[in-house]
Simulated scan of single mutants.
Amino acid sequence: MEKGNFRRHRRLRRSDSMRSLVRETYLHKEDLIYPIFAVEEDNVKREIASMPGVYHYSLDRLNEEVREVVDLGIQSIMMFGVPDHKDAVGSEAYCDTGIVQRAIKQIKEEFPDLTVIADTCLCQYTDHGHCGVIEDGYVQNDQSLDLLTQTAVSQAKAGADMIAPSNMMDGFVSAIRKGLDEAGFVDVPIMSYAVKFSSAFYGPFRDAAHSTPQFGDRKTYQMDPANRLEAIREAESDIEEGADFLMVKPALAYLDIIRELKDRFPLPMVAYNVSGEYAMIKAASQNGWLNEEEVVLEKLTSMKRAGADLIITYFAKDAARMLNQ
Results as ranks from 00 to 15, higher is better:
Ser237Thr: 15
Gly171Asn: 07
Ser237Ile: 14
Ile190Glu: 01
Asp119Phe: 03
Glu30Ser: 15
Met303Ser: 02
Asp181Phe: 15
Val54Thr: 10
Ala226Asn: 11
Met303Gln: 04
Ser211Val: 13
Met78Val: 15
Glu135Thr: 08
Ala319Lys: 04
Val69Phe: 09
Ile134Cys: 10
Ala175His: 14
Gly73Val: 03
Thr97Gly: 08
Lys317Cys: 05
Asp244Gly: 05
Asn43Glu: 10
Asp127Trp: 11
Tyr314Val: 04
Met191Pro: 03
Gly73Asn: 12
Asp244Trp: 05
Lys178Ala: 14
Arg206Pro: 00
Phe80Arg: 01
Ile117Glu: 06
Glu41Val: 06
Tyr125Asp: 01
Asp142Ser: 14
His56Lys: 04
Asp60Tyr: 05
Pro52Ser: 14
Thr313His: 03
Met280Leu: 14
Arg321His: 13
Asn63Met: 00
Pro52Leu: 14
Asn291Glu: 13
Gln75Ala: 12
Pro250Asp: 08
Ala306Pro: 04
Ala118Leu: 02
Asp16Gln: 09
Thr313Met: 04
Ala208Gln: 03
Tyr202Asp: 06
Asp263His: 09
Ser192Ile: 05
Arg321Asn: 11
Leu21Met: 12
Asp207Trp: 05
Ser275Pro: 07
Arg14Pro: 01
Ala251Phe: 04
Ser198Phe: 08
Glu182Cys: 13
Phe80Pro: 00
Asn291Cys: 09
Ala271Met: 12
Ala243Pro: 07
Ala200Gly: 12
Pro165Met: 10
Val133Thr: 00
Ser166Ala: 13
Leu246Pro: 03
Ala118Glu: 02
Glu240Arg: 15
Ala208Arg: 02
Met79Leu: 06
Ala306Val: 03
Val100Phe: 07
Gln106Pro: 04
Gln325Asp: 15
Val66Tyr: 07
Cys123Gln: 05
Arg218Tyr: 11
Asp187Cys: 05
